[in-house]
């Protein structure tokens, strides 16, 4: 028998979705509320100014776009951190691990539901959140346009904007290069797989715990980088440092990409070795 069958994996996805539809429904409601309140708070100031000019409204529209993106990033990372949340209960662990499908099929099925599924859910909730905000403001005699065209502009315009924002923080004023784009993508992939790994390791409260671990590691990394940089403070000219930073981008991109693959592989390995009762190390 094949160890990976698309048909079987689709069936695992179907089961996972049908047996956890309440979770997805709750997620949908939470996403919708997050986007709605995010928008409502941003446009609240517009309603308080009697004759808000176009410029002010437009700036709020851009803020709303930022809020859509920030909330989405937050929710999508939350979604991935929930990949193995269902396995925190013993009975559910038994049901999932005993299902006659291969480990790979179960892993990919859960991963797809928590990535593609959550993305789609997020898109639907953005549309509904924006619509709901318009409706509420219209109802309270403050008609305001949809912020979606601005979001669309942001996305369509900027495969580069996101890259530029990130790239600028790297080398202000420079045009984003191919490696910078790769760096941004690799960073995203690494963060994503880090949360996936966190989900496999912690299962309970994975989002918070992984976030804290990520924060801790970032601070540690920054400290180490700062200390190392301090050692060479007077050895190099600013131009040399700048050049070094440019040259290190490809190395960092590749490293992050490899780390991302490593985290994903480790998550899969943890899943295949997942037992119904955890062994205690200490």
């Amino acid at each position: 028998m094949k160890n990976f069958s698309l048909k079987r994996m689709a069936q695992v996805m179907r089961i996972t979705f049908c047996q956890n539809h309440k979770w997805f429904l709750n997620c949908g409601i939470a996403f919708l509320l997050a986007h709605f309140f995010g928008q409502a708070m941003i446009f609240y100031s517009v309603c308080n100014i009697p004759a808000a000019d176009d410029w002010f409204v437009e700036s709020r529209m851009h803020s709303a776009t930022g809020a859509f993106v920030m909330i989405s990033v937050f929710l999508i990372l939350g979604g991935i951190a929930f990949t193995f949340d269902v396995l925190k209960e013993k009975n559910k662990r038994i049901a999932i691990l005993m299902l006659p499908a291969s480990n790979m099929e179960k892993f990919v099925a859960r991963l797809l539901l928590c990535t593609v599924g959550v993305w789609l859910l997020n898109v639907v909730c953005i549309l509904l959140g924006d619509g709901l905000r318009q409706f509420v403001y219209l109802w309270s005699d403050n008609p305001l346009d949809s912020a979606l065209p601005y979001l669309w502009e942001f996305i369509a315009d900027q495969g580069t904007v996101f890259v530029r924002v990130m790239g600028d923080s790297f080398r202000p004023g420079q045009d984003p290069g191919w490696w910078k784009a790769a760096f941004v993508l690799a960073s995203g992939f690494m963060t994503y797989s880090f949360f996936l790994l966190g989900s496999a390791v912690f299962r309970k409260q994975a989002f918070v715990l992984t976030g804290l671990c990520g924060l801790g590691l970032t601070l540690l990394g920054a400290y180490v980088a700062g200390t190392v940089a301090g050692l060479f403070e007077y050895s190099y000219t600013p131009e040399q440092v700048d050049e070094f930073l440019v040259n290190i981008v490809p190395v960092m991109s590749i490293s992050e990409f490899l780390l991302g693959i490593g985290f994903t592989w480790l998550s899969y390995r943890l899943f295949t070795h997942m037992t119904v009762v955890r062994r205690k190390l200490f």
């Binding site: 160890n3 038994i94 005993m98």
Partner: peptide, 13 residues
């Protein structure tokens, strides 16, 4: 945990 094995065993916890 191969599928061909799992489809032949069932556990009632």
């Amino acid at each position: 945990r191969r599928p061909e094995v799992l489809q032949e065993m069932f556990l009632v916890p």
